[in-house]
Nucleic acid binder design. Structure first.
Lengths: 390, 390
DNA sequence: TAAAATTAGTACGAGACACGGACTTAATGG
DNA sequence: CCATTAAGTCCGTGTCTCGTACTAATTTTA
């Protein structure tokens, strides 16, 4: 049986009935593990006999393993099924300062991790990444590598090309096919905020929220949107470029060319500017320093951060109006000051409740971890191994 | 075979392989008609023999009819297939001033149309709608009615409850089940901007755009978002409530409780305010009058509309940053002044191009028509008749 | 004008797969 | 030790797709 995803009627993909059900079972095992065959039959609506056949196939294919027996009040005890953690994904979080590369299992657990400082030149940078991936492959000979999932600080279009990366100087270089050739593994690239959101959705504490946003606050602001459980990419993967939504349309000009972009007022750079403006003619102070100064009670630093928090909250109102998420996660250094500014951000958001429940606002524990885990989701979701036969 | 839509893993829906392929074929016929069985086989990837079986079933079920033969350079001439226009949907565009109710075929063509002024009281209003639907059913005895698709000026949550309707006074009344009981037909309700967007996506001139937004400018501003070909609803159907995104966060207070909402600056009410403020102590002038005054060259009216256009454009920058649509459609009375203000709106949007192609900006020809046609899409997309067996 | 070529659509046997009931296995409790 | 309960397996049946062969209808070519 062939089947076309009606959401993407242009790009036909063929799947047999078995493929669809196998994929369904595998995803149910992933999201519900530990789970018995009988449970799967109940959740999926498939017959127990059908589930047995599919699970046997998944065990043969080394996607699933049997674990300990469960315990029930009466009757035969169920055999728990788990994803086979022998299957692994190489994940990378590319960043101009520190790039992390790690091996993760299919449950998003990181196993061995490297950190490298990549070169500015794209060719040399990619060579370093390829070398690190080769090392990890060599150090883990017992694992079955599914692919490579990479988070990059920039825009990634529908054909997985990096279309802009202001902090990196890597535009217009096809890093995907370079790494694919250099490692022999399938490679998936995605924008950092999007990867982070996907990581939180798959492996984080989102409590079943199917509509959420991750707001990554650094030098700029990036937003990753999950709508109905799926990453929202828009045309050319540019959805969620909220950092350049106008907060004050007549405000100062941003480097993007427009006026009064949100990130002109609510990013780390904005806080640095607020601090600098308050202490006229003082040397530039980096954001990390401002955080430390705030901790030691410096009123100028506290005021700069407060301003940043207020504008962050104001911009979040736009985000709430746009997507009406159940959950907004803030990621970035600023979350270390959550005890001070969380409530300020929150109250700015709650000014715009309209009808409907207000979104929960929580700080992200570790953005880099989420981005790395998001790499696992990228590969499992998009790569054929889990979605098609073999 | 049973199957669960992975995008909604909570709500299991069961479909056999045949159901999936039947549905696929039907949708391909809808989007590609006139189309031959051989064409369908090529597009879908299914075998010609399989398509023949499915098409025969669809003809028996009166979803599809055979039409004239096509013409090819060589070989046997193909039999064209069309959707059976005997199948009909009753569509309604509910509006506090004028409510339109019509019979539409499955291709979105309107057949017979009624216009009524509905009562303020929800029970009485719904009674009027039910009566109109009954009349249309009686006047079209030869048609097979699939259901009723209704556009309402307010929020509709995931369980199809009207959760707010400031212009209507209908909150917290379950109009869906009332109409369903009163007519015996399946009823789908959706917010006006969303219905409009769906209507444009299915039956309008969107030129294959899969990411688009419809901005409905009236007393307030409503936005309907189509992302990857599908309606974006967010939690409780509140996505796209862009009218209440803050354009000037410190601006005047909106009736929603927040400050400086977009619709405070760019709606018809805003233009009325601009006009009133320019002519101090003059009596209030309705928007329609301002449009007429502008046509006759009144400088105050022109200036009020120009201001409205500038703010409309500024807010659209936010929308572009949020969703990166390929196409933005503006609907509302203001489009009658497109020759004057279209370029002003456009230039405000284009200030924020960032990377990636700029969205096309076009006026919607007839918002009410799109909303009525959207009702067809609602029923066909959601109701079981097209998606499940029978 | 007849045969060859080309394309649309149909017929039918083979194989894959889900269903569902019967059966086996493994546990608890009286 | 047997009844009960639930997990998991076995297997016959029916459905559906595939693929090949065939028929139908039309144009081109000999």
């Amino acid at each position: 049986m062939r089947r076309i995803d009606l959401a993407n009627i242009q790009t036909a993909s063929s799947e047999t009935a078995r493929d669809i059900n196998r994929n369904l079972a595998l995803n149910l095992i992933r999201t519900s593990q530990p789970v018995s065959r009988a449970d799967l039959a109940r959740i999926s609506g498939l017959q127990r006999s059908t589930i047995s056949l599919i699970v046997d196939q998944l065990i043969r294919e080394k996607w699933v393993v049997e674990g300990a027996r469960g315990r029930l009040p009466r009757g035969r005890r169920p055999t728990f099924l788990w994803l086979n953690e022998q299957r692994a994904i190489i994940v990378a979080d590319v960043h101009p300062k520190l790039t992390k590369i790690a091996v993760a299992d299919v449950n998003g657990n990181l196993q061995s991790q490297d950190a490298i400082t990549i070169a500015e030149d794209p060719k040399e940078g990619v060579r370093q990444i390829i070398e690190a991936i080769r090392q990890l492959k060599k150090r883990n000979p017992q694992r079955i590598f599914e692919g490579v999932g990479i988070s990059v600080p920039g825009g990634v279009d529908d054909s997985q090309q990096l279309i802009f990366a202001p902090n990196l100087k890597w535009s217009n270089y096809n890093i995907r096919s370079a790494i694919q050739r250099g490692t022999g593994l399938h490679v998936e690239i995605e924008n950092a905020a999007n990867t982070c959101a996907l990581g939180e959705m798959w492996f984080g504490q989102v409590n079943g929220a199917r509509h959420m946003a991750v707001v990554a606050v650094a030098e700029g602001i990036g937003v990753g949107i999950i709508s109905n459980g799926q990453l929202l990419r828009g045309m050319s993967g540019l959805a969620g470029e909220f950092g350049h939504a106008p907060l004050h349309p007549d405000g100062p000009r941003c480097q993007c060319g427009a006026r009064g972009c949100w990130e002109m007022f609510a990013s780390e750079s904005a806080a640095e500017r607020y601090y600098r403006e308050a202490r006229k003619r003082a040397p530039a102070v980096p954001f990390e320093k401002i955080l430390l100064l705030a901790d030691s009670g410096d009123p100028t630093a506290l005021e700069a951060l407060r301003k940043m928090a207020v504008h962050l909250g104001q911009g979040l109102r736009t985000l709430v109006a746009a997507y009406s998420p159940e959950l907004i996660m803030i990621s970035g250094e600023i979350t270390s000051q959550w005890h001070r500014f969380g409530s300020i951000i929150e109250s700015a958001v709650l000014e715009n409740t309209l009808a409907g429940p207000a979104p929960k606002l929580i700080p992200s524990r570790d953005g880099s971890l989420s981005r790395l885990r998001g790499g696992v989701a990228l590969v499992l979701q998009r790569h054929s191994s889990l979605n098609n036969k073999h």
